[in-house]
Amino acid sequence: MQEMIYTTPEHEALREQVARFLAREVEPQAAAWEEQGFVPREVLRRMGQAGLFGLMYEERYGGAEADAMTNLVFAEALSQSTFAGFIITVLVHTDMASPHLHHAGSPAQKDKYLRKVVGGELITAVGITEPGAGSDVAGIRTAARRVSDGDGDHWVLNGTKMFITNGVMADLYFVAAKTGPGRREVSMFIVEKGTPGFSVGRALKKTGWLSSDTAELVFDNVRIPATNLLGEEGKGFYSVMKNFQTERIALGAMAVGHCQQALKLTLDYVRQRQAFGGPLWDQQTIRQRLAMLDAKTRAARQFMYHCAWRVTQGHDIVQDVSMLKALTGELVNEVVQTCQQFHGGMGYIRETAIERLWRDARVLAIGGGATEVMLEEVAKRY
């Protein structure tokens, strides 16, 4: 595929760096990670040491101070792997959790944590979703109340979070909790692993993303210092909404990457698979359907890059990014399911790449904003 006008030689060098890392550190071992249910910490540390965990963060903390376009190139390059559990483990750390510290953290909070986050010494998770509140962030019930006693000023957190990626393995959690009676009176807090009263309720077994750990988190009178408030009290809802745009572009990149890999695998397969007296590629319906899916994928990729470019220009992109998330979440399921169909029985065999992509793609129409929610975000901005 011809390269795009949005990218620079520096972007392409980053893409090649990520490809080398995948070939060396991920693809040979990732099948074993699917069995164990998590990505080894030493692999994540090596990513951090390679400078891949802080592309948009300040140089003083080990970051590259790059823009949204660079971050998209990273996410798309990472998504050329067919092991989505590894991909989401990384993207939650880089694009969904640690940006809360980058955007809203005080100088003292950044000095304490951010260099270690960028270096891969601390892995992060974000606690927003609850058993009764997912895309409806204002509906969360986890609550925090401020107390002052002989031990000083503290916040006390109570509640439960659900479907938290990196929930078991993370060291640092950015947690949303209600701090007032209004639906949007939400604040963000920094909670360290090992804080008394904070526990992993259970690790959750999933259909896909098998090498990412996912957990239920329990907060039972968790006392944290008042200084662990992240950003302004009562403004966490807006912080979450802001960060959703970065998250959804990254998920769009993940979906496009899955489409690209599924098409590549299937083109290779139908050209060598013999049936009805010749390769499957000779069947007109197969050629034409793959051509149309490739066209849709290329169009979605262009739109994705356009969204990132608009971020760099300072535009309001909520409607565009909501469109992107809805479009790519549905497209990846169409592409991967069709490609799996063209693999016949082999497409249903565990440990084949196309079967893994099929399992992993399904959640991309759900997580990070379900398709229906995204379309409502689009519609109410007309």
Rank of each mutant, 00 (worst) to 15 (best):
M1D: 07
M1L: 15
Q2F: 12
Q2A: 15
Q2T: 14
Y6F: 15
T7D: 12
T8D: 12
T8G: 11
E10G: 14
L14D: 10
L22C: 06
A30N: 07
A32M: 09
E34T: 00
E35I: 03
G37I: 00
F38W: 10
F38V: 06
R41M: 08
G48R: 01
A50Q: 04
R60Y: 00
Y61A: 06
A64N: 02
D67S: 10
M69P: 08
L78A: 02
H93Q: 07
P99H: 11
H102Q: 15
K110N: 01
K112S: 13
V118E: 04
G120Y: 02
G120S: 10
I123N: 00
A125W: 06
A125N: 03
I128S: 13
G134V: 03
I140R: 01
A144Y: 13
R145Q: 06
G150K: 08
D153V: 09
D153C: 12
G159R: 04
A170K: 03
L172T: 04
F174N: 02
V175K: 12
G180C: 09
P181I: 05
R183D: 13
V186W: 01
S187C: 13
V191E: 02
E192K: 10
G194N: 03
T195L: 10
P196S: 00
P196H: 00
G197A: 02
F198S: 07
F198C: 05
V200D: 03
S212G: 09
D213H: 01
A215L: 09
F219H: 05
N221S: 08
V222I: 10
E232Y: 10
E233G: 15
E233S: 14
K235E: 08
S239A: 15
K242A: 15
N243I: 15
R248M: 11
A253P: 00
A262S: 05
D268F: 15
Q274L: 12
F276A: 15
Q283W: 15
L293N: 03
T297L: 04
H306L: 05
H306Y: 14
V311N: 13
G314W: 10
D316M: 11
V318M: 13
V318P: 04
Q319W: 00
V321W: 03
V321Y: 06
M323K: 01
M323N: 07
L327Q: 08
G329I: 07
E330M: 09
L331Y: 00
V332M: 03
V332L: 03
Q340I: 08
G345R: 14
M346R: 10
R350M: 11
R350Q: 13
A353E: 12
I354V: 05
I354T: 00
E355H: 12
R356C: 07
I366M: 06
V373G: 04
E377Y: 06
E377A: 07
